[in-house]
């Protein structure tokens, strides 16, 4: 199965939930489960193109080390976490439905930590 390589960055304290590692180089399948399940699936599974909603679920299942409630809420990132796609606010790119392309850089920044 073909794969897409992408870079994920965490900032604003979010990296603390991900082994304190800011930058992650990933390779994910082009087609993923429509229900965002990240475990291996069979041929009868409905699929969709790799999008940010799937990436969020994948990060939760495979990279997040602690306190899931600080990262996700209702199948998306928790309110107060900013997402950028290639340095553009994801609100301009369709948010979770943005289909990830090879070489994309996705940044997650928490705004919730003290000032």
């Amino acid at each position: 199965m073909s794969e897409i390589s992408l870079k994920v960055e965490f900032g604003g304290g979010l990296e603390l939930l991900f082994s304190n590692q800011k930058s992650h180089q990933l390779s994910l399948p082009t087609r993923v489960a429509s229900d965002d399940s990240t475990s291996p699936f069979g041929k009868e599974q409905e699929t969709k193109a790799l999008d940010i909603t799937y990436l969020i679920h994948w990060l939760r299942d495979h990279r997040l080390k602690e306190r899931v409630e600080l990262f996700m809420e209702n199948d998306t990132v928790r309110p107060g976490i900013l997402v950028l796609v290639n340095d553009t606010d994801w609100e301009l790119e369709g948010e979770g439905q943005y289909e990830i392309k090879d070489g994309d850089e996705i940044v997650f920044i928490s705004t919730l930590h003290g000032g």
Partner: peptide, 17 residues
């Protein structure tokens, strides 16, 4: 504010007390 800091590459500290 967070976007400004990000695009200006300002370094700040972000850990919860």
């Amino acid at each position: 504010i967070v976007m400004y800091a990000y695009f200006k590459r300002l370094t700040y500290f972000s850990t919860e007390c």
